[in-house]
Amino acid sequence: MIGETTTTVILDNSGIRRALTRISHEILEKNKGLSDVVLVGIQSGGAYLAREISRCMEVIEGERVPVGFIDITLYRDDIKSQAPHKSVGKTDIAFSLEDKRVVLVDDVLFTGRTIRAALDALMDHGRPCCIQLAVLVDRGHRELPIRADFVGRNVPTSLKENVAVRFDDTQQPVEVVLEK
């Protein structure tokens, strides 16, 4: 019916767990362990997922990976057209990024503009050895030459649809839904 939104669950809770566990293994494999690896989650969904991935990696390797959080509001390219300006979230990276292997974490990869902003923000914090990208869902429709290194689930979508990762009050991922 016109005007009505339908919601389909793409990934349920255990699906998300499996995807995050696999991503954690892939990060460890690609970087040959976790020396010099740090996670940086993009506020707010990516920040919650970065914490989850860090927990998974700790279970696998028995060692804790540093986790930081970055807010990209001040680096957006659409800020000129945004009215009124949104509140600015907190950036909290308590460690140096110099020569680190940074894994940037976000929930949904779409146009790539958020990632572009996050890359600029990270560079202002230091010069990492490399930056890799981990996302829970890649929904396509890139507008910039950006791709993810680690993907939970590829979901072909139309531009009319919306993909959302839902979290509970304790910031644990609940499900990924497709709204159309």
Binding site: L74, Y75, R76, I79, S87, K90, D124
Partner: peptide
């Protein structure tokens, strides 16, 4: 709240954002 977020910019080596 926005001012609290801005403090992070003032505390780092490159104290500038493109906003």
């Amino acid at each position: 709240s926005t001012a609290e977020s801005m403090r992070e910019v003032n505390g780092r080596a490159i104290k500038k954002v493109p906003t």
